[in-house]
Amino acid sequence: MADVILELALVLAGIGVLLASYRLLKGPCPPSRAVALDVLTLITIPLLVGAAVMTGRAIYLDVALVYGLLSFLGVVSLARYFEKGV
């Protein structure tokens, strides 16, 4: 029962990935695509933690941790590029 609800939640997040990637591929201006990248990162972090919980190995959490830190760096460098070009 709990496993089924958990998988349902992850599939719902997967539909979110589909919608955000629509904005990513269509996006009229580059900052819109950057927002879509931000949202995709924020959806992927729970997906990574969910994969770790369903597998039961603690090392997988570190991937989510590294991703949460470094994607911030990527988005901030994109913002800096849009403002005055790196």
């Binding site: 609800i5 939640a9 979110g16 969910g50």
Partner: peptide, 18 residues
Amino acid sequence: ALLTLLGALFLFLGALGI
């Protein structure tokens, strides 16, 4: 699992909003 489902609903709504 129920709390995760609620959070995934908000993730989905955020993607819908975008």
